[in-house]
Design a protein around this nucleic acid. Structure first.
Lengths: 405, 405
DNA sequence: GTGATTTACTCAACTGAGTGGATTTAGGTA
DNA sequence: TACCTAAATCCACTCAGTTGAGTAAATCAC
């Protein structure tokens, strides 16, 4: 039966795809489940689940993972995702460098690379990214055919550059948009390419690897050169243009300014008198921050009240389950920021059903954003209800293809 | 085939229900469409649509609405919703009064009533609401059996009262929550009762009757005694605890205060020196506002910058298609507020794909909130993808019941 | 006018999704 | 050893939407 895509009406083929994706999604999130267990969760009949499991196994997406003894009745056969069945590549494009990560279908990181980009021409960047991807695949020791796609996270994603264009000129993400590097890369590699902003990728990473696992409503604040937020509501990411928290107007010392003119690494580095390569993340502004600890503390003291205000604002508008603060700053800076943000405003977030902290530190992995980016092609390939409706260059694989004939 | 509700897996029965709801939803939003047209939109086969149309007609939900001549080929038979097939009742509970509205299945208002509540005991309120509903049904001249449910909109909806409890004590909505009037009313009337906050109900009303028709992402700001927002994202309402914009912290004349301590009718009335019944909406604070125009202008001048800030803040966080300002204040006050809110902040909302104004005035119907509340039981009964996952007391009718045997 | 053309709609056979009851399997338990 | 329980399967079945042939009723071209 043909699947009539993108229509409002649903047919059996659609249902089948949905159920396959649902079962696969459950196995991905919680490894090792039996047919009977899946039937209970999905409320499908054991027979249907059995058929689906058979299909997925035939497609090489899952495999048996031993039997469970100890209970009454016949022991159940557990199944798990076949980690080596597919891979996702994530590129984190920052101002001065690129980090590339590769994760397998079990969402385990397999290889990482970083590279400082010397060229700033769009064509040069395109070529450099292509080489980096090849190198990453080689390093992981996998077949290029098994890569399902490429996710790109860049600091700013706007369909139009109505603001601060000058600060973007000549940068990587300028090339990304004006030169359509994503489309060209998709063509070069024959793979789907998905672009997101860094904060959204970070939110995906926290949802997959970090503090937001299992949460359906949360905010991820990414304190970088700028200050952005990835907002997840009802399990889905907000579109790229939302979450521009750095551009919120605040009053600082009597003057109305943008939040990120205070709360951003950019501003911290200004205060520390950093210049040239000392501003680069790779060259290690972390060292500078350590060396100028006193001045950094002052910045923290100044920023914390604004963070407190931001938490209250986001809570009042969005009522998330938790707010996660991520950054490449040293851990003690984040700890201190969160510490000084207390006491958080008295508002609805104080409800007794709360389980997660109102404000917490994110994972500290430096490849966080790249990891999130790497999940995108995997999610786009297998998820029934993808975290977001991404703009995708190229065509996503149909992992179920060939099962029906 | 049995529908296995609330499971993750889908079966044929689920698909059938979904397709029926989809077709019905299309006919509701755009009256008079033919089978062939619906088949094109839904991407279902003409045969399937024909079957569905047959079912819906047999259930009395739709009826033929004439043939379309003029084009080539056989003229198409249009169908439309049967307006008299069902009704929704909306109650707008404010501090000092209740407005009740009844709309038919074509979402046309059929009867309105208002009542000042003298009693404040929970039991008394319950009884009064019951009588008001009966009166409304009588006034509309319809059979009580045809009412599909009751929607209640109240100024504040919080699952717990962690804030400002004293200002809620003894009020209608205090009774609503602590005494569970919704549950009791559902039991009394044998009807499903759905509770929402007033701003969310207003957002529903704008989406159904007003400026937000066809929009999937917008904010509705409801400037009342307090200041709340209904947020619609991807066609769905945010849960009740979100949108508490009145509790955002702003800096006013050097002091940090809550937004609604300035931008709210409560504060305006304070400034106008209103007391007692002059504060009531029904007794007409509008007259007072007119009489004290100069002082009102001052309040507007003071509030507008905060409104400007709020628009920028919401845009940066949520990136809505439009922001709608609703209120019971006189029209000129809203016009002036919006006028003085210009120039709006320079941000991503300036994108060229914009079609709706960034900030606009909502419908001025005084029953706006009640109308939105009245849509809730109708939507809950027929929508495939309900605007929100409401907490519903009682059981929603199954309008398709009896079709399958 | 007349016939070709176009479009709406229907009939009846069909495909294939999940279902349900009987059955087999394989461990625990008395 | 005999019984119980739960997992998994066999197979006939139900009933979604689909398909393709066919009919009805309008407009269009000459």
């Amino acid at each position: 039966m043909k699947l009539r895509a993108s229509g409002l009406g649903k047919n059996n083929a659609y249902t089948k795809r949905l159920n396959r994706q649902t079962v696969l999604g459950l196995l991905r999130r919680d490894p090792a489940q039996s047919r009977a267990e899946l039937a209970r969760v999905t409320r499908l009949s054991p027979q249907s689940v059995s058929n689906i499991i058979g299909d997925l196994e035939q497609a090489g997406l899952i495999e048996p993972a031993g039997k469970v003894y100890g209970g009454k009745g016949q022991p159940a056969t557990n199944y798990r995702i076949v980690a080596e069945r597919g891979y996702g590549i994530g590129l984190h494009l920052d101002r001065d460098f690129v980090r590339a990560t590769l994760i397998d279908f079990a969402f385990e990181p397999k290889a990482r690379l970083r590279s400082t980009l010397t060229t700033s021409s769009a064509k040069g960047v395109q070529a450099a990214l292509g080489r980096l991807i090849d190198k990453l695949i080689t390093k992981a020791g996998i077949s290029p055919d098994l890569v399902w796609g490429i996710g790109i996270a860049s600091p700013s994603l706007r369909d139009e550059r109505v603001i601060d264009t000058e600060s973007l000129e000549g940068s990587l993400w300028s090339a990304l948009h004006s030169y359509e590097i994503d489309r060209r890369l998709a063509h070069d590699k024959g793979l789907p390419v998905i672009v997101e902003n860094d904060a959204n990728a970070g939110a995906l990473a926290e949802a997959t690897f970090g503090k937001a696992q299992g949460l359906r409503d949360f905010c991820y604040l990414f304190l970088a050169h700028g200050f952005g937020a990835g907002i997840v509501h009802d399990g889905a990411l907000f579109q790229a243009n939302a979450g521009e928290i750095g551009r919120l107007q605040i009053v600082h010392e009597g003057k109305t300014v943008l939040l990120e003119s205070i709360v951003s690494i950019e501003h911290l580095l200004d205060r520390l008198g950093a210049s040239g390569s000392a501003r680069d993340r790779e060259a290690g502004f972390a060292g500078l921050v350590e060396a100028r600890r006193k001045e950094t503390e002052k910045w923290i003291a100044q920023s914390a009240p604004h963070l407190r205000w931001l938490v209250g604002t986001l809570e009042n508008i969005l009522d998330p389950e938790t707010i996660i603060l991520g950054s490449d700053l040293p851990e003690w800076v984040l700890d201190r920021l969160i510490e000084l943000a207390e006491p958080l405003p008295h508002n609805i977030a104080l409800r007794s059903t709360r389980t997660a902290p109102r404000l917490q530190k994110g994972l500290l992995d430096r490849d966080m954003i790249g990891l999130g980016a790497a999940t995108m092609p995997l999610l786009a390939t297998i998820e029934a209800d993808p975290a977001s409706r991404w703009k995708i260059s190229g065509t996503v694989f149909d992992v179920f293809h060939g099962l029906d004939d």
